[in-house]
């Protein structure tokens, strides 16, 4: 279990992290989401040991990772949002150089490098110069480099940015494989649709604070519970509207043809009871469902600026 408590970091007058708390279980693929400048990279850099926090702790089990630097470096692999490659160095040499930085030498290093290059599908590029690789290949090479010492936790800062859709899918597949191998992955990204498919849990950070954290099921439950309820009425619409107007969970009602859109604050049980009530009143229902929400909608709701929030609120209230 990786546990971050009350992490604070200030750059001059700018409070990058303001009491960040985070818990990530072993084997999770954690999506770290937030707008630019929210503090994602700072958090990852602190976890990688590259930055000092002003306050707070990063613990892995019983171990304080800010105190035990060698253990931290052995347990963590870091893939930053840049490549960091050398000119005039071949792919195999690049990998072997970083292997030697971890004290992995000789045959052991060569075996490990070829295994990882195979894993990231770069085995045929071993004798290519690094600066001649494509962006996607460089990103995969960086991932292989971060795995050279077989770390338990992998930190990835915007790993899919700038990659074409095909490369992105391939990269995502590699991350899934790593997750299946039992590694804990922390992925910071802006591509929320991918995160929602890939991650087992997610955390949304804004202005240095964790504003929402949970498993994907919990997050989607929350997204859906805040979405409007869509009822398609086949007949007896007037009666249906009368029932709905008097229902305590209904906040707003918008009617478009046979479709009624409700601002409904109840849970699944309330939804079931409302449906039963409508059926008992002889209202013929052809459709009854929550509008599907996305991570983007939630992200915008949570991290949006006041104007965006106002627009969203207005849209919710007016039933648009």
């Amino acid at each position: 279990m990786l546990e971050i408590k009350d992490l604070r970091k200030k750059y001059g007058n700018f409070q990058a992290l303001d009491g960040l708390n985070l818990e990530i279980a072993d084997g999770e693929l954690f999506g770290f989401v937030g707008p630019n400048g929210a503090g994602k990279t700072t958090t990852l850099k602190i976890m990688a040991g590259l930055l000092s926090p002003d306050e707070g702790s990063v613990r892995m089990g019983d171990m304080d990772m800010l105190q035990d630097s060698r253990a931290l470096r052995m347990k963590i692999g870091y893939v930053p949002d840049f490549f960091g490659v050398y000119d005039n160095l071949k792919v195999s040499e690049y990998m072997e150089f970083f292997a030697s930085c971890y004290g992995i030498l000789g045959l052991q290093a060569r075996k490990r490098c070829s295994l990882l290059l195979e894993q990231v599908k770069l085995e045929d590029k071993a004798d290519f110069f690094v600066d001649g690789l494509s962006r996607g290949m460089k990103q995969r090479l960086c991932l292989a480099r971060a795995l050279i010492h077989n770390p338990d936790i992998l930190l990835l800062d915007e790993p899919a940015s700038g990659l074409d859709p095909r490369t992105r899918v391939e990269f995502t597949q590699i991350l899934r494989e790593l997750r299946d191998q039992g590694k804990t992955l922390i992925v910071s990204s802006h591509i929320l649709s991918e995160l929602s498919e890939l991650c087992t849990s997610i955390g949304i950070i804004e202005q240095g604070k964790m504003v929402l954290q949970g498993s994907m099921e919990q997050i989607f439950e929350r997204i859906n519970s805040s979405n409007p309820l869509l009822i398609s009425v086949f007949s007896n619409k007037e009666k249906a509207l009368t029932i709905l107007k008097s229902h305590p969970c209904v906040q707003t009602i918008a009617v478009r043809g046979d479709e009624i859109k409700l601002g409904f604050i109840g849970d699944r049980q309330d939804e079931a009871m409302l449906l039963q009530q409508l059926i008992d009143a002889d209202v013929l229902i052809s459709g009854f469902m929550r509008e599907k929400g996305s991570l983007e909608t939630l992200f915008m709701q949570i991290t949006g600026h006041e104007e965006e929030k106002a627009v969203l609120k207005h849209e919710m209230e007016s039933g648009i």
């Binding site: 590259l50 470096r73 930053p80 960091g84 971890y102």
Partner: peptide, 11 residues
């Protein structure tokens, strides 16, 4: 070249 950070994360 942004390789210093990478080296600093190694042992």
């Amino acid at each position: 070249r942004q390789t210093l950070e990478l080296m600093l994360t190694t042992t």
